[in-house]
Design a binder for these strands. Structure first.
Lengths: 232, 232, 232, 232
DNA sequence: GATGAATGAGATTTCATTCAT
DNA sequence: TATGAATGAAATCTCATTCAT
């Protein structure tokens, strides 16, 4: 997420919405936003105390409420920023054609990197759903957005698949794997995991890779190559 | 979920520990546990009020604390039950050999059904991590457990794969997909989703594998069969 | 106001509404209600601190909110009680016939006494209007209620007067005089003030009083003249 | 209302005291005073936010405190202006002689008009008493002032009445009726109400009105009877 | 074994006022 | 002269837990 003061233009909580902020105000707003991002990520929505946030931002309680109308409002602002970043990435999803595999692999890496930044915050998203259905919807929309983009690519690369279901399943896989890696639940090196994700995606989309014109010996070689990425 | 009278668990000073419960007590305990399960699932850990739980169980606050030393204690008890159920399922994971595909497909269905019961509660698990690292560990252990069991099967079915990473990625996929289906984020019918999960798992494990003795025409057919399940 | 525990049956704040209170709860409720009445009377709505009230009632903050959902809720409950008492008195307003003058005088005294009890609270009513229009309406309705009852009596005693306007003006007089007396803004003895109120009311309604033994012609003319200005 | 530049008042350290204000400063001061008048009237003392006032005046918080040392200071300044206006009116109270009835009626109308301007502010006066006894005294003094003036007139017109009590009761009536009319609690037309007020006042002071051509015996007796009840 | 009343620490939020530019 | 940012004490309200019956 670009956390520059001018991130969403006038964005910030209700109290500042519509007002023009001077340089000092912009800096303060950014500090509060940053503090919120990190405190929410560490503790989750409920366990995060406004007190923790203002201490992290080194501002007073009064200042906090000058920029955000409530703790929930701040959460929404942070979430919006995260969502923006994620959606931007979803749009950059490359084609799934065989020839573009390196591009897809690179994209996975970007995804991973983004997850390293936002993963801990994303984890808290479900908590906030309870109190604000709009925030919940945003989260849901994110998954849908990724699935939609991926489905388009699947459809182009393998027209006879159920693109919707396949895309959805693959997004689940990619997202959750990144989540586990980020939260240290997986000890496997990230690079390897990305290889596996790419390989599984490829085999799901292209099935048994066999150049149609190849002779029967080739398949074995191909399969070996395909398996290679899954090797330890 | 095993709702043994002497659940006790590992958490601090469960009031019922050591006591023998008569029939009436058992019924009350069960009511509180059930209420907790459903309230936690609906609202999450923090948003769940002890008041909500006692109302749902139709007992008094005093009674609640006769059976559980704290809200956290109850959460732990519920979580333990869920974990027990999940681990039991993990143990029943069938082989991934081609011939056992129907068995795996059936297992996926069981997984799905279990998720329908516990999915909403599982979602709340991450919240509680913050306050009790033991609960967090239990959650993490669950994933590890599934991965471990799946890795064993992968290793048996495709010895040359990086079984650890592959299993982990597949578990992520299966789990998260079930989660999304359960939380209505996916409109696709469950049966289809299971077919896709089975297909992706198969192609990931077996790749474009070709029995050496097959003639060259077969691969195409195989690939077609593989894709068939992904078709809309 | 009858501040017995059973005052409004289940009345008390929202939290207790509908619940059955045991003896102890009833006593506590009454204590909070009493404390609220006196603290509001002393300080007004805004300057009254919940802290003042709980100290006066010798209960904890938690207990306060067990019986009333908010400070405003308590205010409403007190106001309701006061309104009930006042309306009851309005209903007992005697006839304004000459022969019932002593009864009216006695009623004024009752009014005065009621004002001694509730006057200081009534003063605070306007403050609360700002935040709760319903409370404001209740206050307004009180004046209307008194006017309505008095108008009925005026109409019976002097059919050709504009009963509505006359009643309204007289209620204003009686109410505000009592208010000032209660708030020590008047040093005049209460008894005297009541005499004056009774006299002004009488002359307003009956015009010039003429001893019975007078000739019959004059009185009629006099009364007619007196009433003329009050006609609608 | 007298809005002198050097209003200062009696309250603590008015920032403008001693300073000479230029044209611009005068305009700003006037804007703040006007804003305060209307915001206090709308919301009352406590519910009025300094923020509301500065927004209404279109000045900054800093500017507000350049002219008034506190919210209370501004309230005092507004109150002072209102009091000045009211006292001026009290001084113009005409005689209550029969022949001056039209003058009295006209005065009532002026009173009414003044109330239309200040009534909503006067309502808030009682709130502020709590925090500043001086403000409370000013309010009380106003009533006293009116009573004093009216008592003088009563004494002149009907020497044998208890002028003090009578005047007080009549002031209560006039004031409160205007208040209710102003606050729309009375649906009666203003003109009619003024007629009734004049009539009640007249009959209270003069008792039965008797055409001048009547014989001299009766009036005295009648008046005596009427006045009897008003005697101290 | 069970109940409902009571507790109080602690959380969020408000808002008059001051400060720096 | 004016501005808008910042302050922080204090207010209201919450809710897991304990107590008395």
């Amino acid at each position: 997420m670009s956390r520059t003061p001018a991130r969403g233009g006038a964005r910030g909580g209700a109290p500042t919405r519509g007002r023009e902020l001077r340089a000092r105000g912009q800096r303060t707003l950014a500090r509060v936003l940053d503090a919120g991002t990190s405190v929410f990520a560490d503790r989750g929505y409920y366990a995060a105390r406004v007190d923790d946030i203002v201490k992290a931002a080194d501002v007073s309680h009064g200042t906090f409420y000058r920029y955000f109308s409530s703790k929930q409002d701040l959460f929404g602002a942070v979430a919006e920023g995260v969502a923006t970043d994620m959606v931007a990435l979803a749009r950059e999803l490359p084609s799934l054609d065989r020839d573009d595999e390196p591009a897809f692999r690179a994209w996975l890496e970007q995804f991973h990197r983004l997850y390293e930044r936002h993963g801990r915050f994303l984890r808290t998203w479900t908590e906030a759903e309870v109190i604000d259905s709009e925030i919940g919807r945003t989260a849901r929309d994110l998954v849908t957005e990724f699935s939609r983009h991926l489905a388009t690519r699947v459809r182009a690369a393998a027209p006879d698949l159920d693109a919707g279901a396949a895309a959805f399943v693959l997004v689940s896989m990619i997202e959750r794997t990144s989540y586990y890696v980020q939260s240290r639940q997986l000890r496997v090196a990230a690079a390897e995991t990305l290889d596996v994700l790419a390989a599984v995606t490829r085999s799901a989309v292209h099935g048994a890779r066999r150049p149609a014109h190849r002779d029967s010996a080739a398949p074995v070689a191909t399969a070996a190559a395909g398996r290679a990425v899954l090797r330890s």
